[in-house]
Amino acid sequence: MAAAGKKCSGVLFLFLLFSLFSLSQSLLSDSRKLSVELNPGAASLPRGGDLLHVRAVGDNDTLHFLFCSQGAPTLLLVHTNTSSSTVQVNWSQFVERNHSGSLKVEPESSILYSSALVFSRLLEYDDVNDTADPISDLFPPYELQDFIWSRFNLSGPSALLCGAAANFTNGSLCLQLSAFESEGRGQSWPRLLHTANSSQVRVWLDGVLPRASRSRFLLELKAVGGVYPLSRVEVHRSIDDEFTPSIFQVSQWVPTENASSADLGFVQWKPVAYRQSNPALEDATPCRHSDPRPQSGEAAAAASGLIRAFYAEPETFGMNVSFGLAGEPFYNSTKFLSWTLLVGSGSPPVDSFSPLVVSVMAVGLGTPMILLLLGGVFVLPAEEGAASATYEPIN
Score class of each variant (00 low, 15 high):
280 A>N: 12
290 S>F: 11
258 N>T: 14
238 S>N: 02
238 S>D: 01
293 R>W: 07
253 W>P: 13
299 A>N: 05
255 P>T: 00
275 R>M: 05
239 I>T: 06
283 D>T: 15
296 S>F: 06
298 E>I: 10
242 E>F: 09
293 R>K: 12
248 F>L: 08
248 F>E: 03
292 P>T: 03
249 Q>V: 02
293 R>V: 15
249 Q>K: 07
287 C>I: 05
302 A>C: 15
276 Q>A: 10
284 A>C: 12
274 Y>P: 12
275 R>P: 08
242 E>M: 12
258 N>V: 09
303 A>R: 03
250 V>C: 04
266 F>S: 02
234 E>F: 03
268 Q>E: 09
270 K>E: 13
258 N>P: 00
278 N>H: 03
247 I>H: 05
251 S>G: 08
298 E>T: 10
243 F>S: 08
291 D>R: 04
243 F>I: 08
281 L>R: 13
251 S>H: 07
273 A>W: 08
267 V>F: 09
262 A>N: 04
295 Q>M: 15
292 P>G: 08
254 V>K: 01
286 P>A: 12
257 E>W: 04
291 D>W: 11
279 P>M: 13
265 G>C: 05
289 H>S: 12
239 I>V: 06
286 P>C: 13
265 G>A: 05
293 R>G: 04
248 F>T: 04
267 V>Q: 07
240 D>W: 00
267 V>E: 05
304 S>R: 09
276 Q>E: 03
296 S>R: 15
258 N>Y: 02
259 A>G: 02
235 V>C: 14
246 S>Y: 07
259 A>L: 00
236 H>S: 02
238 S>K: 01
293 R>Q: 10
290 S>C: 11
249 Q>H: 06
236 H>D: 00
284 A>V: 07
